[in-house]
């Protein structure tokens, strides 16, 4: 069963055809990687999926419903969570508060005027947030300001915030960009653990081939705004077209 169906998506920025005739089908409970050289249109494609950009043509269906024309918050409420290239967290708030916000969004929807009862009285939210922090092994940092966390911890927190909403599809935009090797490996382990233990589909955009080949069960190669090939990792590694377009002779 495919959970995300992208059909014939095209996007043009002035004279640049960023995406053309992109077809992509992400199967449920897989880790699907989208790779490609710089300027291949990976990020544009991702932005079309989450409501940041509106494609000029084509359709994007999530679980049988179109996501086009919806605001990012509506698409999130449908069950798609996004992790950014540089961690987007609430820097001024504590780690625990960061974790509570997605829990509130999940429970109360896009807007609720819940102005009188105290946050501390919301036992179910607190419990959920604490449990998620435990799972991310960040409980000891719960009262720290999120801005003071290390890069790796910010990434963990952001992933934890997304997971606390129990999304059906998790989109990751170069989750290990700019990370040290140790942090990269930790993130790989975390993502593996998530995909093994949870009923979740992961779509990941990544530069680092080490990350891609240790995680993905399916890979789409994008080049010049259009998919070159979609296949299993073993076949991608040996595919001469991919080598030529992207991996180069060293791969």
């Amino acid at each position: 069963m495919s959970i995300l169906e992208v059909k014939n998506v095209g996007k043009r920025f002035g004279g640049l055809q960023a995406l053309s005739k992109v077809n992509l089908s992400v199967k449920e409970n897989t880790v699907h990687a989208i790779i490609g050289p710089n300027g291949a249109g990976k990020s544009t494609l991702l932005n079309c999926l989450v409501g940041k950009l509106m494609p000029d043509s084509g359709s994007v269906m999530f679980d049988g419903q179109s996501v086009l024309g919806r605001a990012p918050y509506e698409i999130n409420q449908m069950g798609i969570s996004r992790v950014f290239q540089t961690p987007e967290i609430f820097g001024d708030l504590t780690v625990l508060e960061n974790m509570m916000i997605p829990c509130f969004a999940k429970r109360d929807g896009a807007f609720t005027l819940n102005a009188l009862p105290g946050v501390q009285k919301q036992k179910d939210i607190l419990q959920k947030a604490e449990q998620m922090l435990e799972e991310m092994r960040m409980s000891d940092k719960r009262h720290m300001h999120a801005a003071a966390l290390s890069r790796g911890d910010k990434r963990r927190l952001e992933i934890g915030m997304c997971l606390s909403q129990d999304p059906r599809l998790l989109l990751l935009d170069e989750p290990t960009a700019g990370m040290a090797r140790a942090d990269t490996n930790n993130t790989i382990d975390l993502l593996k653990e998530i995909s093994d233990q949870r009923d979740i589909t992961i779509a990941i955009i990544e530069h680092d081939m080490h990350v891609v080949f240790s995680l993905a069960n399916r890979i789409t190669v994008l080049a010049q705004g259009t998919p070159l090939v979609e296949d299993d990792p073993e076949n991608i590694r040996g595919n001469p077209k991919v080598r030529e377009a992207y991996l180069g002779e060293t791969a």
Partner: peptide, 14 residues
Amino acid sequence: VKSNQQRMNYTGLN
């Protein structure tokens, strides 16, 4: 809202 509107939007909050 003050801290990060982008994150709010992508967390399902209007």
